Structures are given as C-alpha cells and as structure tokens.
Amino acid sequence: MNDLPLTWITQQLSNIPADTNKRYLWCTDENALNMLPAALHQQQLLVLTNRWDVAEQAKAHGFNTEFNDFDCSAIADNSLDKIFYRVSKEKPVVHHLLNQAWRCLKPGGQLLIAGYKNEGTKTYIEKIAKLLGSAKNIEKNGPVYSSELGKYTEYDAAQLLDDSDYNQQRPIALDSELKLLSKPGLFGWNKVDSGSALLIEQLEEHFDAAKAPASCLDLGCGYGYLTIAAAGLANCSSIQHWTMTDNNAAALAVARQNLLHNQLTGEVIAADAGKGISAKVDLVLCNPPFHQGFSIDGDLTDKFLASAKRLLNPQGTALFVVNQFIPLERKAAPLFTQVKVLIDNGSFKVIQLGL
C-alpha cells in the first residue's frame, strides 16, 4: 500500500540541493519499508532508523545509514539544516524525535513532518510549532497533514514534550516473580501482553519435559517476555542456550539487558523475522506482529512461519500465539506436519507446530 505521508516526505527529500556544507537528517521507521527512493545519494543526508530491515534496504540504496533506537546523542546541538520525519505509531517515539529536532536544528533550520489525520499528526504539528516558535503552516491534502516548520527559539530542556522518559529502561510486571525491563516505544511496553501470557500458560501445561530441549529461539522477541517467562518453567529447565531476535532496535537493547538481568546464557540478534539466522533449535516461541507501521500486514505471519520451519530441529516444537482472526492454521498447514490448536479463548489462540 502506498503511504501518502511518506510519499510527501520523499518528494521533499528529492529537493535537497547538492550542497556539501548542509546537513540533513531523515528519521524513519517501518513505514519506509519497500518505499525508499533510489536516487538520493547525497552524503550530507543521514538516514536514522530503528528498524533493521529498513536499515539494510537503505544501505543497499546507497544511503548513509545508522541503525539504533533513534539515538540522536551524537548529533550536536544546532547542527542540522533540515530534519525529515513521517510520524511514527508510538506517541513516546514521536515526542522523543520532536524534542530532538528542537535541539538539533540550527536557528532557522526546518522540520518537515507529515502523517495521516487519524495518527494525531495535526496535534503533533501544533505542539512542535509552539516549541520552535514557528507558524504552524499546516497543509491538508486529503487524509494527509504536512508542515514545514522553522526553528526560531532556543532549545529549553524544561519545556520538552512528554516522551515518557523515552531513553530510560525500567522494571515492569512488578506484581509477578519475573525480572523484566522494558521501555517506551515498544509494543505493549509497560505491561505483559495477554497473548504472550497465554502462550506461556500452554507451554507450561502441554510441553513435554521428556523432550529435554537444549535450545530455544524467541522469534520477534520484543523486550523478551517469552524467553524470561519460559526460563522459569520446570519443563524448560534443560534449555542451555536462549536466542532472541527482533527487527526493532529498542527491543534488541532491552532484550540484551533482560538476558543479563536474569543471568541466562544466550544471544540477541538483529534480524527481519529471523532472516539470516542459521542455527537450528529445539523450541521456537513466537508472538508475531501483524502490523507493518500503521497497516495490517498478513505477510508478516508467513515470514515468521517460514523462519520457524527453517530453524526448527526435526523433532522440535514451535508454539505461536496470534489474534483469533489470523488464519495461522491454514498458513502453517503446507509447512508443518503437525498443526494443533492448544487453546482458543476468543481473543487469542495458541498453536503447536511440528515438522
């Protein structure tokens, strides 16, 4: 699907002059996947993304690219001429990047921002315009709001938008025995996802400890709940090596800390739905996302299923939890000889897969 706000952003990017004395920043996330322009190779433009697959595509297109959790700390105050930003899904991410735009732009520099009406874009533009001391300059083109905002005020850390302490990892699930860290910007960052909790319940009840798995892959790990919760189960006590993988830079950083925090032996790998991982495992746990940015993307489930089949040992087991409307059984049938629904509670279903 064509993302109209991103189309507007890339049109503005195409107008960047070939002036090596200027510095530009493009902050982008999963919305840019498969929509990166091919003709923008200006070395003065840095693409900053928190998505591994977008970073890999941007590098392949010849962009100067950094992959991290939108960490702008290396960018000096008042140093950028323009920042380009298509608003993100998570409010703390948006507020974090708008705050950084205020800090990093030169006096008179510009923030070019766009998003759909139903994403809160108009409100975001109004908030950052006030901080920058700029006219709102809001343009509406169908469902898209966009604006070019100038910076005319001095950065003041006391007036920043509330980003929920975006950079700060903090304990969650304090009412449980789990030692879990998380942070804003991640899906369901400040709670235990009910679908993932249902998977752990089924793992504890149905997984045969006699199989004595030695390795586990948490596919699309997020902050690592499935790994940390599974590590505390008696029927997973034989697991000696835990692997966690995700496409999101924030998830990877927190997952690493959760491994250390719980003294587990394992590794955290940046990958797109497990792409590039080769080591096979005895157990795969997965709560696959079904959104690509703001849009539902059924192909994501297919990618996670294909990786589970490729990475599962012959006698291994994969457990998936998905929203009730995702036809995972049908999608899995051509790939696995065993497809068994362990539970369907009307909201989520947990499905056991075997080769």
Score class of each variant (00 low, 15 high):
I83H: 09
F84Q: 09
F84M: 10
F84G: 08
Y85K: 09
Y85N: 09
Y85I: 08
Y85M: 10
Y85V: 09
R86C: 15
R86Y: 08
R86E: 13
R86H: 15
V87Q: 07
V87M: 12
V87P: 10
V87N: 09
V87E: 10
V87S: 08
V87G: 03
V87I: 15
S88L: 12
S88K: 06
K89I: 11
K89H: 11
K89P: 02
K89A: 15
K89W: 14
E90L: 10
E90N: 12
K91W: 02
P92Q: 15
P92G: 12
P92R: 13
P92T: 13
P92I: 12
P92A: 10
V93E: 15
V93W: 13
V93D: 15
V93S: 15
V94P: 07
V94I: 15
V94A: 10
V94N: 11
V94Q: 04
H95Y: 14
H95I: 05
H95V: 03
H96E: 10
H96Y: 14
H96G: 02
H96V: 04
H96K: 05
L97T: 12
L97V: 12
L97Y: 09
L97H: 14
L98A: 11
L98V: 10
L98W: 04
L98R: 07
N99E: 07
N99M: 02
Q100V: 00
A101M: 00
A101R: 00
A101W: 00
A101C: 03
W102D: 01
W102G: 02
W102R: 06
W102T: 00
W102N: 01
R103W: 02
R103Q: 05
C104G: 01
C104M: 03
C104E: 01
L105K: 04
L105T: 02
L105R: 03
K106P: 01
K106F: 03
K106D: 02
P107R: 05
P107D: 06
P107W: 02
P107S: 11
G108H: 05
G108R: 08
G108Y: 11
G108T: 02
G108E: 06
G108P: 02
G109C: 00
G109N: 06
Q110I: 01
Q110C: 10
Q110T: 05
Q110R: 11
Q110G: 01
Q110E: 11
Q110N: 01
L111I: 13
L112M: 07
L112F: 13
L112G: 03
L112V: 01
I113S: 03
I113Q: 12
G115S: 12
G115I: 09
G115R: 05
G115Y: 01
Y116R: 14
Y116N: 13
Y116W: 11
K117Y: 05
K117L: 00
K117H: 12
K117E: 15
K117W: 05
N118H: 15
N118L: 08
E119M: 14
E119F: 07
G120Q: 14
G120E: 11
G120H: 13
G120D: 15
G120C: 14
T121L: 06
T121Y: 14
T121M: 05
T123M: 10
T123F: 14
Y124K: 02
Y124G: 01
Y124Q: 10
Y124R: 04
Y124C: 01
Y124A: 05
Y124N: 08
I125K: 08
I125R: 04
I125E: 04
E126G: 12
E126Y: 01
E126R: 11
K127L: 03
K127Y: 03
K127Q: 14
